[in-house]
Design a binder for these strands. Structure first.
Length: 807
DNA sequence: AAAAGATCTATTTTT
DNA sequence: TAGATCTTTT
């Protein structure tokens, strides 16, 4: 099958595809067919003497890699496409690192710490060093370490770096360098790499082992990079290591869409690419196939205001299209109503489905208002963002078991599950294990295996519990090594059962447990699919290791299960990058919101905000709307806002501005009405009622209190509705408060003595049976199985219950 | 051990 | 306001 490069590509696309005599930089304007160029170029290389394993193509998301691979497979066949080295920086590098692990003092089973693991480790390091936890916040510390790593600065490099020193001094964090070193060592001790380490160690591997580098250099005869504007210094450096010699490199990107500097992305990588590779041929893809001429021109007129950029003339040959509509709302709530109304009217005018609409905002907290507006009109919607599947507690717990089985030195996995499900190993014991481990430079697992040789001072009972845990994990490890017929799925189900996780989740049928169970089942199903898919590809032994190495680099973006359906899309502008919608609403166009107040007076940051706005506008195919609100609820307060400066950056001939005549009068009226309504609301504001009332009303009817305040604030509420909902919550509240005051009279004093087998009735948990009693006197603790609430451990001194029968 | 109360803080998040 | 996290109470 020959690809027709003449017919299926425009001139500049074709030039970019066919040029392979040296380094090339493809500047791909929004909607200009960037992926098309990349896929055709790879297909072209494959048809002209390159074997698939000679081509390395790096992306930022698994999704991008997967989609591109599929498209290439359609052109050159599945067989050849399969052997391409195409994937995210992180997944490709982890593959290389697993193969070469011994060179850098790791095993190929190394764990990948996610952000939560890293923060948790930092938290314990900060605690161990007895530093002020207010000054040294894990997130801040983590960001600084990440920044160092993205710039390939090692702990020793950091310690001798003047700039880092100054910054740490002014941030009152002189211990940063010590924390970084400790963190680095602890990760090594645990056989773990964080996301940044995957880059750092790849760089170190190539730097310190020239023969290894030579091998990969020879293999990767051609290197392509997608979204080059998002690369950081480390990524750029590794690409340079691989391509400096043969200069066969092609990077594709759009400087105007560089919006990830907060994660280390450096726009200079693309701006100065031609300086690093002096013989670079630059191609510009300037025809936009996505948007109307008006949208493209409006976006051009905006981005023109940026200083730092590669000039280009993006154009569209689609229809002219309508001007970008600008809406002004009195309040954030009204903004929601306007947007939703516009969606409804557009749907009446034209055959749009709900999925033809997207609402894009700068911050996630803005989503709620639109959610409510959509819900009020019964329009289906889907919010992107939030907790990913793999971040959920129950999933992390299960995966921690897998991790510990694959790599018992994994400290974070160890800490996570040593007492889950509860096996009576408390914080004190874990603390002792950690200090013994750090004192002896060994892993927590090593201490657990030989507590005596590392001077762990614990009593007999604790010792037994610890050994029980060790045997449990060792059992799994043996299961894996002894029985090679067991694949990841078999191992997974066994671990979930034997560890007691299944029991724990199946205790009772509370809604939380039910959803936890569902999630675990989904994970297990995923493992099954994973094994099946791998088997189809001809692999036999699909181990837990295989599963983990894949799953630790997956994010929610990849598992778009409930993805489709006719729904309005709500997401941040950041997550909209790379997507397109027929109609786009960019909302919250106000100073201090978009641009974010965080940009301050930094020109660099302000230009990035502008690029972000550029990304937002260029998502639209047919209609684009911008809106702002005069007042907005933020941090529990009403704030007055002014229209975003970016609105003035767009040439007004592309905008349809709100009617200026009578505008200010309208605004004033709106504000006054809003103030009146707000005073009314004050009288019945939930915050002046006793504290526990709010909780109850929220729980019973999540909308009640929020919508009453909000709709009143919009100036559109009828007051009876507002009073009505608050009235009902007050009624619910009073009964709740009387219960709690009655409760205070019981449950104090000397503990009741109970023994296993007794039936008791607890004030809240109801009937239950005493299973076992531990400790005595004030510390006596009973494990009780309740009929409805499951198994619970209660401190008898405080528990509020009475004995029902002796049995 | 679990729940309630108090206090703090507040972009964006491809891996 | 909402959430996360720390502290106190039961």
């Amino acid at each position: 099958m020959e690809t027709n490069y003449i017919e299926e590509l425009n001139e500049s696309q074709r030039d970019a595809v066919l040029y392979n005599d040296g380094p090339s930089l493809v500047i791909a304007g929004a909607g200009s067919g960037k992926t098309r160029v990349l896929t055709y170029k790879i297909a072209y290389l494959l048809e002209n003497g390159y074997d698939p394993w000679n081509i390395l193509a790096l992306t930022f998301t698994n999704k991008a890699a997967r989609e591109m691979k599929e498209r290439i497979a359609r052109q050159v066949g599945e067989k050849r496409a399969r052997y391409l080295w195409m994937g995210t920086f992180h997944s490709i590098f982890s593959r290389i690192l697993r193969a070469e692990a011994r060179h850098i003092g790791f095993t190929s089973q190394f764990t990948i710490y996610d952000t939560a693991d890293s923060k948790s480790l930092l938290r314990s390091i900060i605690k161990e060093m007895a530093l002020d936890e207010k000054t040294y916040k894990p997130g801040t510390v983590m960001a600084r370490i990440s920044n160092a790593k993205n710039h390939l600065v090692s702990p020793s490099g950091y310690a001798s770096n003047q700039e880092a020193f100054r910054e740490d001094q002014s941030a009152r964090m002189p211990a940063m360098r010590d924390i970084y070193l400790r963190y680095w060592e602890r990760c090594r001790q645990a056989g773990a790499m964080d996301f940044d380490d995957l880059l750092v160690y790849t760089y170190i591997l190539f730097r310190d082992f020239p023969d290894v580098l030579a091998r990969y250099r020879e293999q990767f005869r051609y290197v392509l990079v997608d979204e080059y504007q998002d690369t950081n210094y480390a990524q750029h450096s590794i690409v340079l290591q691989l391509t400096k010699e043969n200069q066969r490199v092609c990077v594709v990107g759009d400087d105007a869409q560089s919006i990830y500097s907060f994660r280390g992305a450096d726009i200079d990588n693309i701006l100065y690419f031609t300086k690093v590779y002096p013989n670079t041929k630059v191609f510009k893809l300037e025809q936009n196939y996505r948007s109307t001429q008006t949208i493209v021109c409006a976006a051009n007129s905006l981005i023109e205001k940026n200083e730092r950029q590669i000039r280009k003339e993006v154009f569209s040959e689609k229809e002219k299209g309508e001007a970008i509509g600008v809406f002004q709302a009195y309040s954030d709530v009204e903004e929601g109503e306007i947007v939703v109304n516009r969606i409804a009217s557009l749907r009446r005018e034209k055959e749009y489905g709900y999925s033809d609409f997207a609402i894009l905002y700068r911050t996630n907290s803005q989503s709620r208002i639109f959610e409510e507006a959509l819900r009020k009109r019964s329009m289906p919607y889907r919010i992107y963002g939030g907790l990913s599947f793999y971040q959920r507690k129950e999933i992390k717990d299960v995966i921690a078991y897998f991790r510990l089985v694959v790599n018992p030195n994994d400290e974070e996995a160890f800490k996570r599950i040593i007492n889950y499900p509860a096996r009576g190993i408390g914080e004190t014991t874990v603390g002792k294990i950690i200090s013994a481990a750090t004192a002896n430079n060994v892993s927590l697992w090593n201490v657990l295996c030989e507590p005596l040789s590392y001077g762990l001072e614990i009593n007999k009972g604790t010792h037994n519990k610890l050994q029980g845990f060790r045997e449990l994990i060792e059992g799994f490890i043996h299961m894996q090594t002894d029985d090679i017929t067991k694949n990841a799925y078999d191992m997974g189900t066994e671990i979930i059962r034997q560890s007691g996780i299944m029991n724990d989740v199946c205790q009772d049928n509370s809604p939380e447990n039910l959803s936890r169970k569902e999630n675990i089942e989904e994970l297990v199903n995923g493992m099954n699919d994973f094994c099946a898919a791998r088997q189809e590809e001809g692999n036999t032994n699909i181990s837990l290791t295989d599963f983990l190495s894949e799953v630790s680099l997956l994010t929610d973006q990849d598992s778009d299960k409930e993805g489709d359906g006719e729904k309005v899309t709500l997401m941040t502008v950041h997550s909209a990058k790379g997507l397109e919608f027929r109609n786009v609403f960019v909302v919250g166009m106000e100073e201090n919101l978009f641009p974010s107040g965080m940009a301050g007076d930094s020109p660099r940051a302000m230009e990035e905000e502008r690029r972000l706005f550029y990304v937002a506008i260029t998502r639209a195919e047919e209609h684009c709307f911008l809106s702002f609100a005069k007042t907005r609820f933020r941090y529990g307060k009403m704030e007055f806002g002014t229209p975003s400066r970016f609105l003035r950056d767009i040439d007004t001939c592309f905008l349809r501005l709100p009617q200026e005549a009578g505008l200010s009068r309208q605004v004033d009226e709106g504000v006054q009405r809003f103030r009146r309504e707000r005073q009314k609301v004050q009288l019945i504001n939930p915050s002046i009622l006793p504290r526990n009332l709010k909780k109850v009303s929220d729980a019973v009817s999540p909308m009640a209190s929020a919508s009453s305040v909000a709709s009143a604030a919009s100036g559109f509420s009828n007051s009876s509705a507002a009073f009505g909902s608050s009235g009902s919550s007050a009624a619910l509240g009073s009964s709740a408060s009387s219960t709690s005051s009655a409760a205070t009279k019981t449950g104090t004093g000397t503990p009741v003595i109970v023994s296993p087998g007794q039936q008791i009735e607890h004030e809240r948990f109801g009937l239950g049976e005493v299973l076992k009693v531990e400790g005595n006197g004030d510390n006596a603790k009973a494990t009780i199985r309740f009929k409805n609430a499951g198994e619970k451990q209660l401190l008898l001194r405080f528990a509020r219950f009475k004995v029902v029968s002796q049995k």
